[in-house]
Nucleic acid binder design. Structure first.
Lengths: 353, 353
DNA sequence: TTGAAAGCGCTACCAG
DNA sequence: CTGGTAGCGCTTTCAA
């Protein structure tokens, strides 16, 4: 008789109760509450609504889903929530979904592709209208193929899919202009006079990092200027990673490096703190630039040069892309804009040969 | 024949299909896949599983919900996602829920109590096992009463409720020790030698702010020391609000104020930037302290003195509280710990009478 | 405009 | 251990 520690079974008044209370049939009650109000006598409709209110009736969404054969659900998979990057994306997706009258179900993959796959599997059970994956973007063939298979089945079953900033998969995708943004940042820094760089990046399989890194290097290369051989240091894609990487740079001796490009802001900020901790003034002795332009980029000292990406907008756009029903080839590229601040004031002395 | 712009109807293989494919009855298929595996011959079970895999079958959660009379859903209402405070709470709730095998549905109230109420109404339609509200904590009687009514009905129907940091409502609640944390911060600052304070707070109806403010003032008062009349400035509960408030303080002339307490970190950080913009060095000429100890508190210059509240843990605890099924009177107080950093080094000169 | 009734996909009870 | 079958709460023909 005990329903167990965690388990009650939410019930509540049903449409039958409402119908009885209003003295009409369930069919009429259904029509009055959720169907086309058109064909029900207004007096009856009023009685039904009154009865529903009196009883505190709420339509059982699962029952509706099964009867109608459709849900109003969007399944969202993010790598993490407690991270401004994903939080902003989630905010965008949620805003747009709610505007379309859809309910968002969110699952957190903890940045693990396997878990991401597992979640998509389970979420599919909800028969969501749309599945949005804002993933960890880690390359890897097997899990990736399974994910594609899973999403394909979803689509075959009539569902929609949208990806945010994933590697190239056969679904509508909105991507951030990582390569272009980093490239333009390189140009901007060169324009300021910097010539020797260090790049703080994440491991190769983190695609976002890889793209930003290669974009930056491409920007340097195509300038035709003599930039020597940029120092590249690999670390975690986190604040701690940036901190560690900067530490490593200082330890190995940063030589003639004038500017550090960290592939995201939290790494850049961690790096700045590490520099300062070692007595090196960020901006003055060593310039620092990041990527993402997170809110706090403006509150660190010196304010951080970065590349702004409208993350909330990217999330919203993903929803729109999914709902628009354009084909799997639909792509949206969210622009990235270089924002120069005091952390890259230009090299201290005009390069003296 | 056109299903409309945004609307496909996700279908897919059903249990019947699987059963037929495996050459067993639906009942057996059901048992093999989702019921107690105990009572089905392993050979049959294998056939069923194989058939399910071959067909890409996923149980229809809505159908299960309706047949079982129970869901495995947690409905979470947050004020905002794109804010580290709520993001951390959401992360905690999500982590704990997923560990219990529950799926989280998230809705964003945009910090509006009316919208919060509306969302709870709609979410109830999902018949979630648990409803968690991490609200905007704005006082207001009417909407509040309706929310209580709604949540009560949910409970009556057998569901669970948990609140995070809400005003005192008759449901299990985990609260942050805002008053105590601020009080201890006051003590700490007094201990450092500060005597003249300014408080940057949000409007009275923002409860979190109100509690922190009153806790701080109580801490000052009970010290018995001569602290004069602290300057209290009201502004938005945001970074911009902090910036503006600090601006206002400087404009009106901060007189003998030695330390600023902002009721949250983002306000404090905004204030620091404003001070610096006006040529006042934070920490040196004017000490600054915040509340929340958000990640970036450590990355601003000087590092920000704050009061740490384990937000992720608070979210997790709310889930546990809800699942434990303790009565409506269940309360959990998440401790808050003062963290002194360089933004409050102690007043410049030993107080000279 | 209304009501009766047939499902929607799945579970669980009841016989075999 | 297995299959038939009666619902779960709701929508949606089909007749009236």
């Amino acid at each position: 008789m005990d329903s167990g520690p965690s388990g009650a079974a939410p019930s509540g008044p049903t449409l039958h109760d409402v119908a009885r209370e209003a003295g009409v049939s369930v069919a009429t009650a259904s029509r009055a509450l959720n169907g086309s109000t058109r064909n029900v006598r207004s007096e009856n409709a009023a009685r039904v609504r009154a009865a529903a209110a009196r009883l505190g009736y709420r339509p059982h969404l699962s029952a509706q889903a099964i009867a109608r054969g459709t849900t109003r659900t969007v399944a969202l998979v993010v790598g993490d929530v407690d991270d401004p990057y994903f939080a902003a994306l989630a905010a965008g997706v949620t805003r747009e979904a709610e505007q379309a009258g859809l309910i968002v179900t969110m699952a957190v993959a903890d940045r693990s592709p396997e878990r991401e796959l597992e979640l998509v599997r389970r979420l599919r059970g909800q028969r969501p209208r749309v599945i949005v994956v804002a993933g960890s973007r880690i390359a890897g063939t097997r899990t990736r193929d399974l994910l594609v298979a899973e999403l394909s089945e979803h689509r075959t079953a009539g569902g929609r899919v949208a990806l945010i900033s994933q590697p190239d998969l056969p679904f509508p995708t909105v991507s951030l202009d990582n390569h272009g943004g980093a490239r333009r940042l390189a140009h901007a820094l060169l324009g300021l006079g910097y010539r020797r760089f260090a790049v703080l990046r994440a491991p190769e399989r983190v695609r976002t990092s890889a793209e930003r890194c290669s974009g930056f290097l491409a920007g340097l290369r195509e300038s035709g200027l003599d930039v020597g051989r940029p120092v590249v240091i690999e670390a975690d894609f986190t604040r701690a990673g940036g901190h560690a990487a900067a530490g490593a740079l200082l330890r190995r001796g940063h030589g003639d490096v004038q500017a550090i490009f960290a592939v995201n802001d939290v790494m850049a900020i961690g790096a700045m703190t590490a520099l300062r901790g070692a007595g090196v003034v960020p901006g003055r002795e060593l310039a620092v630039a990041g990527f993402d332009d997170i809110g706090s980029a403006i509150d660190v000292v010196p304010p951080l040069t970065s590349v702004a990406v409208p993350l909330v907008e990217a999330g919203a756009q993903a929803m729109r892309l999914a709902l628009s029903g354009d084909g799997a080839a639909a792509r949206a590229l969210v622009p990235a804009r270089v924002v120069l601040r005091a952390s890259t004031p230009g090299p201290p002395a005009p390069s003296a040969p």
